[in-house]
Design a binder for these strands. Structure first.
Lengths: 339, 339
DNA sequence: GTGAAAGCGCTAACAG
DNA sequence: CTGTTAGCGCTTTCAC
């Protein structure tokens, strides 16, 4: 290796170490660097990892890489990780706890320096216990953990303001004169869903209106199904807050299938501002939550932990904003009264 | 480790080796296995990789994970890899050759057992040379390489029948009575694009019709822009073959924006059968190319190479089929004549 | 059939 | 400031 070219042995290691933690003569460093370039030396991360009991790799657990929501977070995270010289390993659990746990084990085996959980946690005893065990493993070799969605576990977190965003979305609809505002939310055992539902409920309660809700998983299919159930139940709503843009895809499809126009008959607000909606009709009014930025912040947070310079607060809540597009409309005075 | 529990040293390694390559007494193996379970022993892939000069990891290079096209391939590949005990590292180049090369270097550093290239190769001297260098590196430690799209490099490949699919799509339109069939294809320096364009041209030539084409990158934006250019140029077409479903998203949006209905004014056929079109209007007629299956086949192929049991043919072409949905319609006799 | 030894490539601890 | 030594956890010679 570089040692052959230079003349020293493990001094080369010190010469090339990035935060210079050991004194090295400038001339020596020069020779080592020259040799490294000459031979195209590349340090072996496996050997490093073996010695340091930790690699320059960051694991990212998502529910579904194909979902634009997670894809955006991953985009931000990988970019930021690459900038810091880290490689990311993205694992898609397909919303199956067993698969997720298996991946987490594998990532631990590979001694990832940090593990980011992009999806929300489950309200499930067994699952939480299993995760707790893994986390102990991660902690044992000094890996960082960051949550990018709400969880019961008290980890450092970079999360969207789910509650506030949902309130904002609902208030937008109320402000347009809607009185019968229904909710299509995610599964009840996921914290993200519960928070968004809570925001909706708070806004409805403040307006002294009766809430109406249906839940599905965070997929287009589930959005369509939930909308169908609301309609089949005979609910008469003029507006719909859908707790995820991905579900909203299915919601709009189902409404159209039932002959309801958006925003003519029903106004719809989504959540997430997932890219791609500019290519759909009508463009969706939604809550923008800076997905890529959450990925970036998650990686920064992990690096801060690794360097022991992580500061409170433990949970950092990211601001959201309402993006008004064409899926919502104001109700005429008469319509509001009739509702 | 397990050695403490048992009583032996590196015999444990032999006892746990999956293809038993060394004789071990049944009783010993029993004790070792019991100890392994007891202590929850998990072999360290870093140490293994360091020794074997190769890890149980498969790298997958894609142009854009967010694109449903690649997401499907990745889904198939990761599932199959996991089944064989391999972890996948997905790297998204964002269509930037420099980024791609950097990722390839990192994957080599991590001694991936195999590298799958999901995107098509570039017709670019410098890029090809750079890739050739990396491949030499991979070969030097016995890693496998598989192409999942056409390339000049003569690697083992599992590819879609791009030419045949494009011909099929074009013939479908011709069969419906269309005479002015235009093409929206991908970049000219990507092999996948060229093959699909070739299929279209072959079908048009056989029908003695003049081809009309515009190229873009494989994104919705580019699809919309290319459609705009065709229209601005004053091309009068009644049908459009779009060489990728992802671009077709933008194509339909642009047609609608210009006041053209699909399939009323223009029939459109895509390529790929990317999931999600069931939630768009109108559902797209397209060429189904079994994306996930290509990912699965790619991993199998890589494993076969690693085990030295890869058989010809070098390039395996996957069948495609036409999926007729609602974006195409037959022209009335009078319309065909007028065209 | 099993143990002892060596080494994959790297870096930290310990002399000098 | 630099060289030597040791060891991260594993597997594979080479002896016995």
């Amino acid at each position: 290796m570089a040692r052959l070219a230079g003349v020293s042995a493990a001094t080369a290691s010190r010469a090339l170490a990035s935060p210079r933690r050991h004194p090295v003569a400038e001339t020596t460093r020069g020779r080592v660097e020259a040799a490294a370039v000459e031979l195209g030396y590349r340090p072996n991360p496996l050997a490093r990892g073996l010695r340091a009991r930790r690699t320059s790799t960051i694991g990212v657990m998502v529910h579904d890489v194909g979902d634009g929501y997670f894809a955006e977070i991953v985009r931000g995270a990988t970019a930021e990780a690459a900038r810091a010289g880290f490689l990311t390993m993205v694992c898609s659990s397909d919303r199956d706890p067993a698969t997720e746990l298996r991946y987490v084990d594998t990532l631990i085996d590979h001694r990832v320096a940090a593990l980011l959980f992009a999806g929300g946690g489950l309200r499930d005893r067994a699952y939480q216990q299993a995760i707790a065990d893994r986390v102990a493993g991660l902690a044992s070799y000094g890996a960082a953990i960051v949550a990018l969605a709400p969880r019961v576990e008290r980890w450092p977190a970079e999360v969207t303001d789910n509650r506030g965003g949902a309130r904002l979305a609902t208030q937008h609809l109320l402000g347009l004169g809607h009185r019968r505002v229904a909710l299509v939310t995610g599964p009840d055992n996921v914290h993200t869903s519960r928070d968004r539902a809570a925001g909706y409920l708070a806004a409805m309660r403040a307006a002294r209106l009766a809430p109406v809700a249906e839940a599905g998983t965070f997929t287009p299919e589930a959005g369509a199904a939930a909308t169908g159930r609301l309609l089949d139940r005979g609910e008469r709503f003029t507006a719909l807050f859908v707790a995820s843009d991905t579900m909203a895809v299915g919601v709009l499809t189902e409404l159209r299938r039932r002959g309801l126009s958006v925003p003519g008959d029903v106004s719809v607000v989504g959540f997430g501002d997932v890219p791609g909606w500019e290519f759909r009709t009508p463009p969706l009014t939604t809550i923008r939550s800076g997905l890529a930025q959450i990925g970036v912040a998650g990686v920064r947070r992990a690096l801060a932990q690794l360097e022991g310079r992580d500061r409170p607060p433990r949970v950092r809540v990211h601001r959201v904003e309402l993006v008004v597009r064409e899926s919502t409309r104001a109700l005429a005075r008469a319509e509001t009264a009739a509702g």
